[in-house]
Simulated scan of single mutants.
Amino acid sequence: MTTVPTSAPADPNVLLEVNDLKKYFPIKGGVLRRTVATVKAVDGVSFAVKRGETLGLVGESGCGKTTTGRTVLRLEKATSGEVLFEGKDVLRSGSRQMKLLRRDMQIVFQDPYASLDPRITVGESIAEGLVIHNIGSSAERRERVREVLGRVGLHANQMNRFPHEFSGGQRQRIGIARALIMEPKLVVCDEPVSALDVSIQSQVLNLLKNLQREFGLTYLFIAHNLAVVEHISDRVGVMYLGKMVELAGRDDLFREPLHPYTKALISAIPSADPTTRRDRIVLQGDVPSPINPPQGCRFHPRCWIARDICKEQDPAFEEKRKGHWAACHFAGEF
């Protein structure tokens, strides 16, 4: 089993541990609907998240980052691997224990338009978790809804409105309130600002940071925008074609990336300073299919430093420097 990359492997402050997580989706075909191929969406991912920190998970569309987040929460059934939340085995927990765990593990979905039920008021949506877990009386639930709406920058008198009466940014605040009302320890943020205008993105990001300080929240923040991840994350993990290729502290990773894929992603970040010149690295070709990933290093067909060993051997995901992990035969040699 792959070693979990943490700053201290036995650190009691680690809230979430993910070991060698895999999620394969079968492709059915023929009259008998037999499995004819497998999509390796997540293929052996390991990481850990410490209490109170934000771990950013980035990569191109289709790299498996959203599936990783959903599988960690058991919204998708894992093919294999291990997910430990405060030492409790999430993937092998029974329904009763899993219900208790879900109070401490919440998610903010990407699409604020699709994640809210249009048939019920936003107050009912926010209070739904309290109802399911039988927390408080009806009056107490309404009071908690009013309180949490105020915490996310909305008015308590808006709780009786329906989702179509709100803007995209307001809907995402409602989604955050719905996660926050359960007083969770871990929140998976699945691209929570990608569907919002740029001016609204900064407001939602600042809100998330303020709530983290106020409630001691831990975030697994999934995004494809590295500028957003740099703003909010303490550490950053980079995924490519179902695998983690680099994991390091935010400043260390953006200052000196060790994997060529990370370097290419960072080179594409626009600079606010017009006098700053950045050597743009344009990757050739398309991302290979997760149904039939390349032999050896999965990035080698698009890598400008690839050599023969890259085509034959899959590089181990190992600690190259203190707290800086990478899966590359020639880490930093570019």
Results as ranks from 00 to 15, higher is better:
149 L>N: 05
204 V>W: 02
154 L>M: 07
144 R>Y: 00
192 P>S: 10
205 L>T: 13
155 H>P: 07
146 R>A: 08
177 A>Q: 07
192 P>G: 06
164 H>P: 12
148 V>T: 07
187 V>G: 02
196 L>V: 09
182 M>H: 02
140 E>T: 09
149 L>R: 05
208 L>P: 13
157 N>T: 13
176 I>T: 08
189 C>Q: 10
176 I>K: 04
169 G>C: 05
203 Q>V: 08
202 S>P: 05
187 V>P: 11
190 D>Y: 00
182 M>K: 00
159 M>W: 05
164 H>F: 03
158 Q>K: 02
181 I>R: 00
188 V>W: 03
173 R>T: 01
203 Q>D: 13
177 A>T: 09
207 L>Y: 10
203 Q>R: 06
150 G>W: 07
153 G>P: 08
143 E>K: 14
197 D>T: 12
149 L>G: 03
184 P>M: 05
193 V>Y: 03
180 L>T: 06
188 V>K: 05
208 L>A: 10
195 A>G: 07
152 V>P: 07
171 R>H: 04
156 A>P: 09
138 S>L: 14
178 R>S: 03
156 A>E: 15
188 V>D: 11
150 G>Q: 14
180 L>K: 03
155 H>T: 13
159 M>Y: 04
155 H>F: 04
182 M>P: 03
193 V>F: 01
198 V>F: 02
191 E>V: 11
159 M>Q: 15
170 Q>T: 07
183 E>P: 05
145 V>L: 10
184 P>R: 02
162 F>W: 14
193 V>S: 04
204 V>S: 09
174 I>H: 03
174 I>V: 14
189 C>L: 15
205 L>S: 09
148 V>A: 00
209 K>H: 05
185 K>S: 05
208 L>R: 12
196 L>E: 12
147 E>M: 07
184 P>Q: 08
151 R>K: 13
163 P>L: 05
175 G>R: 04
152 V>L: 10
209 K>E: 14
137 S>A: 06
137 S>I: 10
155 H>M: 12
172 Q>R: 09
150 G>S: 13
166 F>H: 10
166 F>V: 12
171 R>L: 06
148 V>Q: 01
163 P>Y: 03
170 Q>F: 01
139 A>E: 15
171 R>K: 13
163 P>E: 07
154 L>C: 03
173 R>M: 00
171 R>N: 10
152 V>G: 04
142 R>Y: 03
189 C>G: 06
171 R>V: 04
209 K>N: 10
139 A>R: 11
153 G>Q: 14
188 V>Y: 01
138 S>Q: 14
166 F>C: 11
180 L>I: 09
167 S>Y: 03
147 E>V: 06
144 R>G: 00
182 M>V: 04
157 N>D: 15
153 G>A: 11
146 R>I: 05
156 A>Q: 15
184 P>C: 03
206 N>C: 09
183 E>V: 05
137 S>R: 15
157 N>G: 07
172 Q>D: 11
161 R>N: 12
192 P>A: 06
205 L>H: 09
167 S>F: 02
150 G>Y: 08
151 R>T: 04
154 L>A: 01
206 N>E: 12
187 V>Y: 02
198 V>D: 12
193 V>P: 06
191 E>G: 12
